[in-house]
Design a protein around this nucleic acid. Structure first.
Lengths: 205, 205
DNA sequence: CCAAAAATCCCGGAAAAACAGTATAGGTGG
DNA sequence: CCACCTATACTGTTTTTCCGGGATTTTTGG
């Protein structure tokens, strides 16, 4: 029985490209595609593939959330994340949503085939460059509490400690403490450089 | 005589996808592809296409710089920018490098064909969403002087006015003046929010 | 239930940024 | 050649951040 494959990506040229790359691959059945999350979920109500290749940047929902939803409703489907971005934070979030693998869009046909075959064996697959990113992990993870992230976002919006205190109905000194803890966690010498690295590391937008 | 087409993109699936989408299009000859800037330039020394579809994110050089180089050496070749990102700054830079059009990667086959046909008539083409982005241009352009950008970068790295003054061999008060001018230009209430918008608008990295 | 983590709060002082107001030298382009 | 932009520089005041010390209460997970 051939393994059924489905792809979710908003780029027609990528869908067409993967279709073309895999069309002569034995043991794989092309079930079709969706260009957004909603149509993907609608399709799954009727038919279920064995593997979904899922882009992270979709117009209506992030691939990360879509993956979590799919795994919740259909735990048996294996999801492979597909993205241009070779970022630790993205790969990590995708895997936490239950994905079985992550493939960059510069993957070769061979990598694609290997990814699909590997996840079907209930193993995890990363394309070469993605695996490299996961290995080095030089930017060791900065973990913020809910409140700290909230305060950081307001700081990044240009609010002063005083304004933040009023907005959150807490004392200025508390805001000041959060600010100091943030500086320690980021090992930053001031808030400006902190905000820069927070944006670069996708901690805030 | 069919129009010769070449594509530069580091994503095999995109190359394959475009090839597949355009293979039955009459009047177009597929010349081949390159996955990085160097091999593109090498190819052009032997043969020249009429149109190049050029990705902006290449491993060895930005598509923006590659486009400028290609147009300098071969002004007769029409370049169409190709990218995931629908950002004003990118589209603008690509057009300033001499591109004739800009197509997002979510373009349909019809848009691709139209883009190629349009640029061959020496006209400019934008895919639907890219055109939208160019039209609204709500973030009216913030123009910084060379020195202001230099100072801004140092500020964003967490340096104080004093440190910057020493580094640039100018007075602290001069740095302070630059800082004030930056705040005025960005209409920001402090440097933190300024740095945030500067990163978002790709003015700094 | 209890320890750890998270969130809250306080003082005081030094350092830096923000704000207001001015000014001058040098280069560029119409 | 003259207006305009750019880069430079200064004085003084107010506001905000940064840093040194704490401390208490609430929440959460094993």
């Amino acid at each position: 029985m051939p393994h059924k494959l489905f792809i979710v990506d908003d780029h027609y040229m990528v869908i067409e490209g993967i279709h073309s790359l895999l069309q002569h691959e034995p043991g794989m059945e092309w079930m079709g595609h969706a260009t957004h999350a909603a149509s993907c979920l609608a399709f799954l109500q009727k038919e279920q593939p064995d593997v979904i290749l899922m882009d992270i940047n979709l117009p209506d929902m992030s691939g990360i959330d879509l993956c979590a939803e799919v795994k919740k409703q259909y735990p048996g489907i294996f999801v492979i994340g597909l993205s241009t971005f070779n970022q630790f934070s993205l790969i990590e979030k995708m895997m936490n949503s239950g994905a079985s693998g992550y493939v960059l869009k510069n993957a070769t046909r061979e990598e694609l085939v290997e990814a699909i075959q590997t996840v079907l064996k209930r193993k995890t697959y990363f394309s070469r460059e993605a695996a490299q990113t996961m290995r080095k992990d030089d930017t060791r993870k900065i973990v913020l509490t809910r409140r700290e992230k909230e305060v950081l976002e307001l700081i990044a919006d240009g609010m002063t400690n005083n304004e933040i205190a009023q907005k959150l109905f807490i004392s200025v000194t508390t805001v000041e403490t959060h600010r100091r803890n943030l500086l320690t966690k980021f090992e930053a010498k001031n808030i400006v450089s902190l905000v820069k690295t927070a944006i670069q590391q996708q901690i805030i937008q």
